[in-house]
């Protein structure tokens, strides 16, 4: 190790003064730490970074960072992030949120963000539940999860975000576990540096509505195989693994989307005028 290789920014430089109101024990605390560690490692100062989210406990992340932030509308983190990145390609744009926000109400945007392959990093804190609205099942909830709100479970087959991301064209796909903030930070760094749309699915327990998810700490394990650049192989692996393989699962080679060069820019005032009576 070389001490000279140390980077001057620290995770603390990316934290705001707002104190998170998450439940103690929530996985999202570690994900916030991982995001701030990753940003420090990438080394772009907070004013060159934008963190964009939708709605949910996990979507509160922008308020807790010191970067530019946009706490948007439920399910709309990705269209906001896409628009921002296309108009301000100089910014490092990170989208963050939950499985409800990203895969339920935002599911359509999720597929098209993967397809467009704009150079964004999307961190999904998947707790397989809607935490903020008190425990409804989400698209990734297992069919038999029994609760007062859904006695006997939904009986519905869960959505498989990583396979859908691969099929739709995401260029980097990884899975991590919130209990390993350093490992998660490393994956976020790699995702940021990888061109195009990168998805990091973080298994992040909701200790209040899914206390049994504390057990994930014992279930996660490093992916037993090296990452592949073969989309089909990655999808097959993810479909057949136990859901707890951690690491980079796919590194693609697609060129990120660039808006057509030389297209006339529309001034905001001009655009706004179209909506005024």
């Amino acid at each position: 190790m070389t001490v000279e290789a140390a980077c001057p920014l620290t995770a603390r430089d990316y934290k705001s003064d707002y104190k998170p109101v998450w439940c103690p024990g929530c996985g999202d605390f570690s994900v916030l730490l991982a995001i701030t560690k990753a940003l420090a490692e990438v080394g772009r100062p907070p004013e060159e970074v934008a963190v964009v989210s939708g709605i949910g406990c996990s979507s509160r992340v922008p308020a807790y960072t010191n970067c530019y932030g946009f706490h948007g509308v439920h399910g709309r983190a990705l269209p906001l992030a896409t628009g921002l990145k296309l108009t301000r390609p100089d910014l490092l744009v990170l989208a963050a949120g939950g499985d409800g926000d990203g895969y339920s109400i935002g599911g359509n945007h999720f597929m098209h963000a993967c397809r467009r392959n704009v150079d964004l990093t999307y961190v999904v804190m998947d707790n397989q539940v809607y935490g903020m609205t008190k425990g409804q099942p989400s698209p990734t909830t297992s069919p038999e999860w029994d609760s007062a709100l859904v006695p006997g479970g939904t009986g519905l087959r869960p959505f498989h975000p990583l396979v859908i991301a691969l099929a739709a064209g995401a260029n980097f796909v990884a899975r991590s576990f919130s209990g390993d903030p350093n490992g998660t930070a490393e994956l976020i760094v790699e995702a940021i540096r990888h061109p195009g749309f990168s998805l990091i699915e973080v298994l992040s327990p909701c200790v209040t509505f899914r206390p049994e998810e504390r057990e994930w700490a014992k279930q996660v394990h490093p992916a037993p195989v090296e990452p592949t650049d073969d989309r089909g192989r990655a999808a097959r692996r993810v479909l057949t693994d136990d859901g707890f393989n951690i690491g980079v699962l796919y590194r693609g080679r697609r060129r990120p989307y660039q808006p057509p060069f030389g297209q006339a820019q529309v001034e905001v005032a001009e655009f706004e005028a179209e909506f005024l009576p």
């Binding site: 190790m1 001490v3 290789a5 140390a6 980077c7 001057p8 620290t10 995770a11 103690p24 024990g25 929530c26 996985g27 605390f29 570690s30 730490l33 991982a34 560690k37 990753a38 420090a40 490692e41 919130s178 209990g179 390993d180 903030p181 350093n182 490992g183 930070a185 490393e186 760094v189 327990p205 200790v207 504390r214 700490a217």
Partner: peptide, 24 residues
């Protein structure tokens, strides 16, 4: 030096530095 190394550069034997109380 108060400058950190890269998050993955520390070879802790546990997931985090040993003196951290896990959030979980």
């Amino acid at each position: 030096s108060p400058a950190p190394m890269a998050p993955g550069a520390y070879r802790w034997d546990s997931l985090e530095s040993p003196e951290n109380l896990p959030f979980a």
